[in-house]
Design a binder for these strands. Structure first.
Lengths: 235, 235
DNA sequence: CGAGGCGTTGAATGGCCTCAACGATGGTGG
DNA sequence: CCACCATCGTTGAGGCCATTCAACGCCTCG
């Protein structure tokens, strides 16, 4: 797997799943202690640098990935060269599920920030699933979460004026965070998420900064005026 | 269930799942003959008229639906009143899967044409799933299909100029059909699928008709000039 | 026959895209 | 160490394309 050697920035060795801090929230949450005996062995854990591609559309690997930290974008391309980011994957998200029912990945998965992932063979999931129906429930929940997310991107992020789309994206980025804070994405990525050009994304963000709806607290960490942005997103 | 009485246009009685013509392509494809003994009982089969709502966003029913014929649109609404069609369900598609992992439907499901469905309790699927792991595989395939579809709508139908979006929608509608034929949707629905206004959808379709890329063979049955439309969609 | 829904078309506006330029930043190599 | 280059965010100008608001014909249905 030459590619995996090159894309690995840091290899942390085999994972210690039993004591994984994410254990209660990841795919294997429902498993018994004894189950872990059989799985941590083939699980690799490593980090990749921003811009690194974890897998490409059409690749026929047999791995699923759980995001431990950082962010990945899932990208699809059009025949005319256009591209669209169809989802973001963050901590606890599982990507590559399509491998369980097909033979190839359906997106390019590209790290936006420095990102840590666990990688495990789909075969592990298939085998564990036979003994643990709970795992199926967990898988269905994952799929449904991805589907809800996809629907929301259509409804919220691909509908209405650029101003509203940007506002909704910002609110969405801040939702998971503790305070009203969020890290901004590059203008190009924002454009590819919202279906607008890089320039329009830049102009809109710049305008929000001028109007102080967006205040830079730390480098690339912004405080949002959530009520105002919400008003824009709904008006 | 007063609502179900009102929305039922034609009730065909309990379904004969064992001899269902869709049997090889629907959710229960992998089941043994004996399994059918236990399921056809609670399965209802009926037809609904165009414009009828099968279920609403937020409803807490416990039913899944398989489409036997016709077309349904799955609709989501924005706080500002905007609406977006996020998927179309046609023959053999299953809708309402979200009920299996949540407590409420996530769309409005509205018939576009006269539509026949089979309705069965989610509980049937849960119970059968315990004995038949195959059913899980089938479910995962359904979810993945819906997800791929959602991604494609983002990438193909919500990206680029109105001209290209309309062309891609037409090609997509014709894909499943035998010849290069397809039934057109109302301009309003096309707009809600593509994220454009009704007028723009109308203008674009009218232009394609004038250029003979669309020829009406029968009432609302159109022959497509697929190569030309493909050229438009990719240029 | 009237009402309402739907598709179409026109005119005018405005918002987004395109193409272009520029400053700031950060990494690279001399 | 610094000059150089590439990348990124920003901003401007101009033009196109989609929206908005409006009107009209056709059709179905009551």
């Amino acid at each position: 797997m030459a590619k995996n050697i090159t894309l690995r920035e840091a290899w942390s060795g085999e994972a210690d799943c039993l004591h994984c801090p994410l254990r209660t929230s990841v795919l294997f949450a429902g498993l018994e202690e004894e189950d872990f005996e059989s799985i941590h062995d083939p699980i690799d854990q490593f980090a990749i640098a921003p811009g690194t591609t974890l897998y490409h559309t059409g690749d026929s690997g047999d791995y699923l990935f759980t995001v431990r930290s950082g962010t990945l974008k899932l990208v699809q391309y059009l025949p005319d060269g256009g591209q669209r980011i169809v989802r973001l994957a963050r901590v606890t998200d599982v990507i590559g599920l399509e491998i369980l029912v097909g033979n190839h990945y359906e997106h390019d998965a590209i790290a936006i920030h420095r990102t840590e992932v666990c990688r495990y063979p789909a075969q592990v999931v298939r085998i564990l699933g036979r003994k643990n129906p709970k795992l199926y429930r967990e898988l269905m929940t994952r799929w449904q979460r991805a589907l809800s997310e996809a629907d929301a991107w259509l409804t919220e992020l691909s509908t209405g004026s650029a101003r509203r789309r940007v506002a909704r994206l910002l609110l969405r980025l801040a939702r998971d965070q503790t305070n009203g804070e969020c890290e901004l994405l590059s203008r190009e990525d924002m454009g590819a998420i919202l279906g607008i050009t890089t320039e329009t994304a830049s102009r809109t963000v710049a305008e929000y900064k001028r109007r102080r709806l967006l205040v830079e607290a730390d480098p690339n960490l912004f405080l949002l005026d959530i009520p105002s942005l919400r008003r824009i997103s709904e008006s």
